[in-house]
Design a protein around this nucleic acid. Structure first.
Lengths: 189, 189
DNA sequence: GTCTATATGGAGATAGAC
DNA sequence: GTCTATCTCCATATAGAC
């Protein structure tokens, strides 16, 4: 277990506060209080409030991009790839519950990195859509509008951060499996 | 078509801004600018910023509660009730896209009405869960953890506001039908 | 019903002592 | 690495003229 730097601690605590109230409603004074120091002291470790948000969101977005690249490169079939996507979301969401809230709800408050984030998200969705379309073309999944399918699956996966913390004894493999049944059996011929 | 009062117009425009940036990031000056007046003038029509949020969220939450009561009182079977719930979400989301964003993302910024909102939401989820449990008990739907099922269906329905505006030529019946296929066929024996 | 002017408080961030 | 003190700006909201 790597020792957490003070900067990492600030980012971790900030993400927790951002999940509860959203980026805009959390003040540097709130964050300092949660850290047990004064607001001015935060600036010895971080550049700005915006920089905290950027770090939280971009690292997560890049993790998803990386995961999607590996899934694309695999030679599984369409359903196999969808299962890998489910596992990817379960894994990342469980590792960073608080950060996922910012990724989902506070991305619009990014400043310089906004366009970069949007590009990553658009690419991710396009890759996802392509997997569904391939599955439809090959007859592997039913022929319902891929947009509606993607919307349904992706919004469920994107909301995992809200739901995982409520389960006391979470078994990640079991959760992935249940989600797979519910999300995929419905579109599997 | 009822004529919109100035107060209703403010609430409608506020909801639109809240959807884009969230309640906390929208200032009364932003809202005034969008209305073409000065911030101070808003207070001739509304009591406070908080009051705008309360109006948006509570009216929607009560609409869902009312809808759920009717569905419960109907004598449809479990799948029929689930389809009615899908239609309820599609209808309300389509009627009030902007308000749905506040309901989903800004409820935690409610002040006096926070507990009331939480009660309505908890009741709604309990009613939903009961429908699923009844369906499992009667063998109408598959026996997967009802929590995961509810989570999956409800988060999809709650995110409709993000997705409906992207479809130019939206046919509500068709959308409800597609969602029904995707969300229910997966849990239908 | 809208305006200008203003009250009051709190935001993000920096300087410089310890 | 943390503190106190402070800068500057902007937030919600009110008072009172037109």
């Amino acid at each position: 277990m790597k020792i957490e730097t003070r900067q990492e601690e600030i980012i971790r605590v900030a993400a927790k506060l951002f999940k509860e109230k959203g980026y805009s409603a959390v003040t540097m004074r709130d964050l300092a209080k949660a850290m047990g120091i004064k607001a001015a002291s935060l600036y010895n470790h971080i550049k700005s409030k915006q920089d905290i948000l950027k770090t939280i969101i971009i690292s997560l977005a890049e993790e998803f991009t990386e995961g999607m690249l590996q899934i694309q490169a695999s030679n599984e079939n369409c359903i196999g790839k969808l299962n890998r996507i489910i596992e990817l979301h379960v894994k990342i969401s469980n590792q960073n519950i608080y950060g996922m809230a910012s990724l989902n709800n506070d991305w619009m408050h990014l400043e310089e990195k906004l366009e970069y984030y949007q590009q990553l998200r658009d690419d991710y969705e396009n890759d996802f859509r392509k997997i569904l379309e391939t599955g439809i073309a090959s007859g592997e999944i039913i022929n319902i509008k891929p947009e509606v399918m993607m919307f349904s699956i992706l919004t469920t996966l994107r909301s995992l951060y809200l739901w995982i913390p409520k389960k006391e004894d979470i078994n990640l493999d079991e959760l992935s499996h249940s989600l797979s049944q519910i999300l995929i059996k419905g579109i599997n011929k």
